[in-house]
């Protein structure tokens, strides 16, 4: 077993996903299959091999410290599922 139901539940919580009992079953089986498959990477010796983060070796992509136009407030709020014209409104953070 590469991953148990409990672990899947923990990961789901980390990712803020709620899985029904059925989904948990299915996902656990599927994730287990997939993780078992990706374990084949262990066949390769990667000692001393650089991890690749970017496809090429560019660096120093900078911009100057200049102020540019912001969005008008109504545009910034326009897609908000719940907003009061000034701010986004969410259930209270305890």
């Amino acid at each position: 077993m590469k991953i148990t139901k409990e672990e899947v539940e923990k990961v789901a919580h980390l990712a803020r996903l709620h899985l029904s009992a059925e989904e948990l079953e299915t996902m656990t089986t599927q994730l287990d299959t997939i993780l078992s498959y990706v374990a084949k990477l262990d066949e390769l010796d990667t000692t001393g091999v650089q991890a690749m983060t970017h496809a090429f070796s560019e660096s120093n992509a900078f911009r100057e410290d200049k102020v540019t136009d912001s969005l008008a407030r109504e545009d910034a709020l326009a897609n908000g599922p719940c907003q009061n014209g000034e701010a986004f409104v969410v259930p209270r953070v305890i």
Binding site: R16, N79, G80, P81, F88, V90, P91, R92
Partner: peptide, 15 residues
């Protein structure tokens, strides 16, 4: 995450 754009499930009681 439902905060500032996109879908939000409104039938909720906590963050």
């Amino acid at each position: 995450d439902g905060v500032s754009y996109g879908f939000r499930d409104q039938e909720v009681h906590s963050l």
